[in-house]
Write a protein that binds this DNA or RNA. Structure first.
Lengths: 203, 203
DNA sequence: AGTATAATTGACTAAACTGGTCAATGATAT
DNA sequence: ATATCATTGACCAGTTTAGTCAATTATACT
């Protein structure tokens, strides 16, 4: 790729990246259309190929970019994960929403790119991703759970609750639009659910 | 359409229908490719246009078909919905899995077809669908819930749990393949979760 | 103001793919 | 052997594909 891409307006960079994430995320590498990407990004055909010299170059750049953004948001060493399940999932859900706000199609792109056979990457990023996912569930404090509760299943119920909540919030964000959506208020909304979950699961 | 389609081997009918559901579900009406559909279904180009005389004819047929299958599985009058939340959602989840087993892409197709602007249907089917969705949550018995619990939020936690469980089972079904997947054993797996949920929510 | 350099455009290409047709072939039943 | 049916895939004109490149515009420097 052409490093001067990073000298563009940040807003323009993001327009291009988001358009590409969306198209590749929806259709996979082969069937994604560069025409569609430049149309959505509002740039000319030539410019895209000027910065990423061909389709595969763009795809590979995007994969690295997406992994970087995910790790820096959720798994970076600064963001130390809480021991309390609810605090931890609250934290992660908020971070995912921030990520979704900037790059609505990044997570979907990563999911589908992970098992795309048409390309094989440097495996570095792949491994980093898989390690990261394990960290989400490692070192949780279960001591406060009511006795007689199946911890494994309880954890799944909690996980699915946060997942469902997060998807609902993403829907809201899409509907309301980026400017009318206040992420801090999500925190209070989610704390109502956490209160319920604590009531249910904790002694 | 050509009614003789229904005289084909049932297996062949389903191959064609499933291939079309998948393609339309993934790409929408405009961008779906009839070439892709016949390739996936393993039939010739001519045959598809012999039975459904053009692309739009196929799409309209599929929509009616999909609504019929959904209603007959989940919302038909024989399948009276239980008053107990957990019994009801258990029932619905099982029925959805049966549907998914025969037509893995039917529900996704319906979702995307609902807000496809390129075509306007007889609204009969649309209305039927929306009424049906409301029935899922109507007439539930809340009397056994512990006092001091926010019923509205509790219902969402329960819904998200069944949703997460259902999606996980669909993943298993895809992975294991249709022949090694026993739906009756799902019931017992789900009853473990129901036991936990009862323990949590019921007096 | 003038000139050099870099950013950006979009018309253009050959190849692939699009929805749809139809004469030819294969299968089945009488 | 014949008639009726199901099925095929080469073929069509039109669109879309990834990628190129001469030409235009914007920026920077003297």
């Amino acid at each position: 790729m052409n490093e001067k891409f990073f000298s563009l307006d940040q807003e323009k960079q993001e327009r291009i990246i988001n358009a590409a994430l969306k198209e590749f995320g929806q259709k996979g590498f082969q069937k994604a259309s560069t025409n569609e990407i430049v149309k959505e990004a509002g740039i000319s055909k030539g410019l895209l190929f000027h910065y990423f010299n061909n389709k595969k170059g763009l795809y590979l750049f995007l994969f690295d970019y997406a992994v970087d953004r995910l790790v820096e948001r959720i798994f970076s060493n600064e963001n130390q994960l809480m021991e309390d399940v609810f605090e931890r999932f609250l934290q992660i859900t908020i971070q995912k929403l921030h990520l979704f706000k900037k790059h609505p199609d990044l997570l979907d792109f990563l999911m589908t790119a992970m098992d795309d056979e048409t390309i094989q990457y440097d495996l570095k990023n792949r491994e980093m991703l898989e390690q990261a996912y394990q960290r989400v569930f490692a070192g949780i404090d279960y001591s406060r759970f009511k006795s007689g509760i199946d911890i494994e299943k309880a954890l799944k119920v909690i996980f699915w609750t946060f997942q469902g909540f997060g998807e609902e919030e993403q829907e809201n964000l899409k509907q309301l639009g980026i400017q009318h959506y206040d992420i801090n208020r999500v925190k209070t909304r989610m704390e109502d659910y956490i209160q319920l979950l604590r009531q249910l699961f904790y002694e």
